[in-house]
Design a protein around this nucleic acid. Structure first.
Lengths: 328, 328
DNA sequence: TTGAAAGCGGTACCAT
DNA sequence: ATGGTACCGCTTTCAA
């Protein structure tokens, strides 16, 4: 690999001048610049980011912490983040925390040790891990004061799910509760719970061990054993919903006539299920983009109008819920 | 952040000694070591990986290049890689090449500039990008001589898909062909094509623009317009298969009686579709693990028995294909 | 067994 | 407009 010294030698100037030309800082004569650029081309020189980072104590790396890369919701977030970062010349280190505090902390250490210029975390089991960080941090998919965040309103999302399923006539509802350690799952759970309490319906609650596909399937089987007369399921996310849907059809239920199902997230596959899944959409890709934009502003010390960006959730009506009869 | 100098001062020794203690190299007196460890603890010192990397020209970072993080097959690979790397103290930079040669090259440059110690690439549109790399490279999910690779046999996989669907009685088969730029998709396509040619069946071919969900849906609609009497679809991957399945059911076809469908990959959601999708399984997670292990060996200059690791593909019989009547 | 000092490849200050 | 050089934090000779 060619170094800045090689370039300087070839162009007949000092390293300082090359550095200035490279970074567009200070004066560089047009001819000099030309000679330097030529040398750079000939040598196929690429600045060593590590050396740069060592001096500046800042790299062009962004740390992105995800709780579970296998849940399609998170790659969607990641793509949003990546697309914006790419445009600004930043690169991502992606870490998979696996919902485990130790792994989360491991990755944060890695980020720091590699001089990341900022962190976006969708996995924040413990606030204390972030307390003493000196680089800007944006929380994604959930909030934790006083950190800037981009999130969708889980409480409202949960309420919405419950309201829509009630409005469409379910009377004996099973509310699925996501793993307790997943905070966002608890928000939507509470929202739905509130709404259910206020409505004239029966309901029961079932808690999932995890969002993994296997656990979802197991949970789906259990539901129909324990609550065979359930006529509406508010799932904790789309994976769970897919599992329930699957099991319901296997059992010969007619969807949505015998049973309505509402999912959460609107992952890409939701529309490809059969029947297509009605769900609460979180605008994952957009959330990722917003988080990235926010972090970049933070990095550049630009003024922030709004450090808590709440993105709208929407009810996506597909075919696991009945049509409403009345207008409005 | 505390530096090695702070530790040295606190422990009353030189930085050289601290460094030796840190890396277990050369002699360090037991007492000295104890003092150093104490200082490290008190200062909560973590070595600066960037400085380390600058000197050694090697970091603990691994570059992982994926073609599309939104296709659930790739996160599965990534998890396999990550789990092994994690154990050995390596961390991942994940890049998303988006099937675009420029993005691929961008990320490779980033990897190099950050002194990655090795690269695993599941996205190799152009061999030349890898030709002159000095760090070890492992190709994942496909081969490209002379690089070490971990891959599943697409030709066999394609043949298998065709054979199984023919064996189960489809007579007018539609063979879906993945995007031409995706080499693995072409392998399985060729395998299936071979098998179809040798069998006593009619068939037609349809090429997809991409594996994106939207394109898959569009393609599914087209199939039933152009080839309404198709009684078997060999899909180019599970996403495509899901779209076909969805459309077929929407059209009131009985699966697998009117139409059989075979997917490819066996992504986690395949089993949750309805009916559950019969598919050719690539052991993605295991492939990721093997690739990681291979790369680590390469990094450590360990002897390699086998630089081309082929993983088995298997037919996963679910319910989009008919049961075979005869035995064997 | 330990320490001084020379790098690794850049950046930026201060002269010129 | 350009160059000399100290420095970022760590590793590794080499000498003591």
């Amino acid at each position: 690999m060619a170094t800045i010294r090689d370039v300087a030698r070839k162009a007949g100037v000092s390293v300082a001048t090359v550095s200035r030309a490279l970074n567009d800082k200070g004066y560089v004569h047009e001819d000099t610049r030309k000679a330097i650029n030529e040398a750079i081309k000939e040598l196929n020189y690429k600045p060593n980011e590590v050396a740069r980072s060592l001096y500046k104590k800042k790299s062009r790396l962004i740390g992105l912490l995800l709780p579970d890369i296998r849940n399609p919701f998170f790659p969607e977030l990641a793509r949003g983040v990546e697309d914006i970062m790419q445009e600004s010349g930043y690169r991502l280190i992606i870490g998979n925390a696996d919902e485990k505090p130790e792994k989360e902390n491991d990755y944060i250490q890695t980020f720091i040790q590699n001089n990341v210029i900022g962190i976006i975390s969708a996995s924040h089991t413990e606030k204390k891990h972030y307390k003493h960080l000196t680089c800007p941090v944006v929380f994604l998919d959930r909030t934790s004061e006083p950190f800037p965040s981009v999130y969708a309103d889980g409480l409202t999302g949960g309420k919405m799910a419950a309201r829509e399923i009630i409005r469409r006539g379910s009377k004996r509802i099973t509310l699925l509760r996501g793993p307790i350690e997943v905070k966002t799952a608890q928000d939507r759970f509470k929202g739905a719970l509130d709404e259910l309490c206020q409505a004239n319906v029966d309901f029961n609650v079932m808690t999932m061990a995890s969002f993994a596909y296997q656990d979802a399937s197991k949970c789906a089987k259990e539901i129909f054993e324990k609550y065979p007369d359930t006529d509406g399921v508010i799932a904790s996310n789309d994976i769970a919903a897919a599992a329930i849907l699957h099991e319901a059809i296997r059992k010969g239920k007619s969807i949505p006539n015998d049973l309505q199902i509402v999912g959460y997230d609107d992952i890409p596959l939701s529309g490809l299920l059969f029947p297509p899944l009605s769900t609460i959409k979180q605008p994952a890709y957009e959330m990722g983009r917003e988080a990235a934009k926010l972090l970049i502003k933070l990095i550049n010390n630009e003024p922030i109008q709004n450090r808590m960006i709440q993105m709208p959730v929407t009810f996506i009506e597909r075919q696991t819920t009945r049509k409403v009869e009345e207008n409005g």
